[in-house]
Design a protein around this nucleic acid. Structure first.
Length: 430
RNA sequence: GGUAAUGUGUCCGAGCGGUCGAAGGAGCACGCCUCGAAAGCGUGUGAUGGGUAACCUCAUCCGUGGGUUCAAAUCCCACCAUUACCGCCA
């Protein structure tokens, strides 16, 4: 959520951001007007309450008698009107809050436009594979089946479309990737976490996932009021909710979470139906940083650099894109994706994503810190949160395709070999 | 799932319905003392929101949400969490 004070001091900035995202900026004026109304009402309601408090207190010291009876009658009436005023204020405040929750994070740096208006920041590595061997190239599912790593058919039989089994070397490769990513994070000061996959509604709401894309999320039936996470970002952001954390202005608090992730993939019928590119359940390593707001941009670069490092060490050809404002999630102010080359489809596929959520999530989840250490200044202010995702299961797709051999096996990327007893080549079994 | 107890500030821990934003202690900050430190002594020490140029002031917050009352940390109800025991399952 955006600081209400920003609406009072710089409404044009908010309007500009909403316009950039392709939203109607008139909500800003509605909020400003309602905010005024709420404050007026609040002052009046609090005056009533103050009056009541004062008179109530006097009752205790008053002797029994006419005067006491009179003031009792008066306060009884006052109590009623005060309660009514308070209720009205609360109601209006809730309306204001609902509006406020609808406004997405301020974005100023992201490129203008929608889904296709991203800017390619750079392209790294050799992506000639498809161009050179168009007729012999196999897609990840074909290879996955040849080395007996992926079983799609039985996944569908047991769980429905977009489900799969990772089997044998497939399961081992996935675990190797998870370990490799986790180890890299660990070396960079991230605290490893295995997080809950079911979370309470308020946490889901706080992270900003229950807005426009709420139908993407699995929800348990009553009476278990819980959501299945689509990323461990949710659990990691919620970890410090309602807390005042200790934060050095130069040193981020970093966590790396591993969880299964669940997506309904509503509205993507017919898209990426083959293989394990777009599935209902997959694994991810999520890097998550809590930082002082002024350090957020630096940390965003750090996260991107780490994601690139992992792709580079694996030897995957990839490009980095700067996502356009209209395609950003509601919490993100800016987002960079790393996309690996997919030879079978002659296109790039998103493997990692890193978002700077500035103070947007922290404000919703009530995560603060004290910027001025020591002294008598104990004021708190929201922290900034950032996340960097490594979609492990999709890494598997990219590896199978980019490291395929002529006979339908694969060579194992160097950094993964140590997790697989030094295995260098995987031969096809079928 | 059942029964019982508990839930207070950074932490521990008091709190007959009014004088309680909350005793006392610890911690922390500052000062005195000291060559320096420890100990000791003194002072200060929650958050959020509204108003104010500021001093300051008002409101809200004692797990959460309701209720009773002129007045609730204190009474009532529901929920959540923790702990213990029982049952059941891994």
């Amino acid at each position: 959520m955006i600081d209400i004070k920003l609406f009072r001091t710089d409404p044009e900035l908010v309007k500009k951001s909403e316009t950039l995202r392709g939203n109607d900026p008139k909500i800003v004026d509605e909020i400003i007007e309602l905010d005024k109304e709420v404050r007026d009402l609040k002052t009046k309601s609090e005056e009533l309450k103050a009056d009541l408090n004062k008179k109530s207190k006097s009752i205790a010291t008053l002797p029994n008698g006419d005067e006491k009876l009179a003031i009792l009658a008066e306060t009884k009436e006052l109590s009623k009107t005060s309660k009514e005023a308070a209720a009205k204020t609360t109601q209006l405040e809730e309306t204001l809050n609902e509006l406020l929750y609808k406004v997405q994070n301020i974005t100023t740096e992201a490129p203008e436009g929608g889904e296709d208006d991203y800017i390619v920041v750079k392209e790294i590595g050799n992506n000639d594979l498809a161009k050179n061997n168009t007729d012999t190239i196999r897609d990840h599912l074909e290879i996955g089946e040849k080395i007996d790593a992926i079983d799609s058919e039985r996944g569908v039989k047991v769980s429905g479309s977009r489900f799969y089994y990772l089997k044998g070397i497939g399961a081992r490769l996935e675990l190797a990737l998870l370990n490799f990513a986790m180890d890299t994070a660990l070396k960079n000061g991230f605290i490893p976490m295995i997080t809950p996959t079911l979370v309470r509604p308020e946490i889901m709401k706080g992270t900003g996932f229950l807005g426009a894309h709420a139908d993407e999320i699995y929800r348990l039936r009553e009476p278990d009021e819980a959501y299945l996470v689509g990323t461990s970002e949710v659990a990691l952001a919620g970890y410090h909710s309602d807390e005042i954390i200790e934060l050095d202005s130069e040193k981020p608090l970093r966590y790396a979470g591993w969880s299964s992730c669940f997506r309904r993939e509503a509205g993507s019928y017919g898209k990426d139906t083959r293989g394990i590119i777009r599935v209902h359940q997959f694994n991810k390593i999520e890097m998550f940083s809590y930082v002082a707001p002024e350090y957020a941009e630096t940390e965003h670069k750090n996260l991107l650099a780490l994601e690139e490092q992992i792709l580079t060490e694996l030897g995957l050809p990839y490009r980095v894109i700067d996502t356009a404002a209209g395609d950003l999630g509601s919490s993100a102010a800016r987002k960079f994706d790393c996309e690996a080359w997919l030879p079978s489809q002659n296109r790039y596929l998103e493997l990692t994503s890193t978002s700077n959520c500035t103070t947007f999530q922290a404000r919703r989840l009530n995560i603060r810190y004290r910027p001025a250490q020591g002294d008598n200044d104990k004021t708190t202010t929201p922290v900034a949160t950032l996340n960097g995702t490594l979609a492990t299961t999709r890494f598997l797709v990219a590896i199978l395709e980019n490291f395929q051999t002529a006979d339908g096996g694969i060579t194992v990327p160097k950094p993964l070999q140590k997790y697989l007893d030094g295995l260098e080549v995987i031969e096809p079994t079928k």
